[in-house]
């Protein structure tokens, strides 16, 4: 059978979202950042809200988000994305505002801004990429690095004197201002499909004006972890997910209690 019988516009089932342009992502091969930006683009396109979205980029691997997305984007200083998003949303309450932040940005230098935006219940979508390491600066320890994890600044493994990995989603779920808190992953097709639903929910929630929606993505950093993309994803399953379990943590303003 001629393959060209299949490759026809009417048979199309998946194509990169038009909200992404054709520039090549600056991410390393296999990086979860790319999948997350793809999902943001898909959700925005499917909701048909391109003209109503203002994104907030941060400092870290996703700093160039405005290069790849055909959206209006404001680029924040390191750690300040939640404050910048607050400023935008407060004066433009009818727009959809999201921040895209890594673990250094959201859970270290910007902890104060992140927690207070959550606590005020800013009606925004905070997207948090947790790969347990500082990717852009070359693989240094993050607040989310696991116990024993080897990084450029913990070459013999993270020990207790270096502090403990922080579960930001669980922290912000405790705050009254958060309406939806979920932890997702994007390294298998099934997880990506599930994560997209969660992200869509987090954007839809902005219509309700009931508080902040927080979506954590536990992703790989294969360069930082010094593993191939496939091995990094296996390591993620074996080490990251037991400490950062996936699923909804808070829905409709109520913490999800898991029956054992």
């Amino acid at each position: 059978m001629d393959i060209n019988e299949i490759i026809k516009e009417e048979n199309l089932v998946y194509r990169k979202s038009a909200v992404l342009n054709d520039k090549v992502f600056n991410f390393c091969p296999g990086c979860g950042h790319g999948v997350v930006q793809k999902l943001i683009a898909e959700v925005v396109e499917e909701m048909n809200i391109e003209s109503e979205v203002i994104g907030v980029g941060s400092v870290g691997c996703s700093v160039l988000v405005y290069e790849f997305m055909e959206l209006d984007v404001v680029s924040a200083a390191h750690g300040r994305a939640a404050a910048v998003a607050t400023g935008i949303k407060r004066v433009m309450p009818d727009k959809y505002v999201f921040s895209l932040q890594g673990d250094g940005d959201l859970a270290a230098i910007g902890t104060s801004e992140s927690i207070h935006a959550c606590n005020r219940g800013e009606n925004i979508t905070m997207i948090f990429i947790n790969n347990g390491i500082y990717g852009m600066t070359g693989g240094q320890m993050a607040p989310t690095s696991l116990h024993g994890m080897k990084t450029a600044t913990s070459p013999y493994g993270r020990n207790e004197a270096m502090g403990h990995p922080i579960r930001m989603s669980d922290v912000v779920a405790q705050l009254e201002g958060t309406y939806y808190v979920t932890r997702q992953a994007v390294h298998t097709p099934a997880m990506v499909r599930k994560a997209k639903k969660a992200l869509r929910q987090a954007f839809e929630n902005q219509k309700l004006n009931k508080g902040l929606s927080f979506v954590e993505f536990v992703t790989n950093c294969n360069s930082g972890w010094k593993l191939s993309p496939i091995k990094a994803n296996q390591w993620l399953d074996q080490h990251m997910l037991p400490f950062y379990p996936l699923g909804d943590i808070k829905t409709e303003g109520v913490i999800v209690t898991k029956d054992k």
Partner: peptide, 24 residues
């Protein structure tokens, strides 16, 4: 007009940065 007490001066100036991005 919007009036908001921020959690710090650092947050204040970045709320200004975000809000000023909208041309207001």
């Amino acid at each position: 007009m919007v009036v908001l007490q921020a959690e710090s001066e650092v947050a204040s100036i970045y709320m200004v940065y975000g809000a000023a991005s909208t041309g207001k």
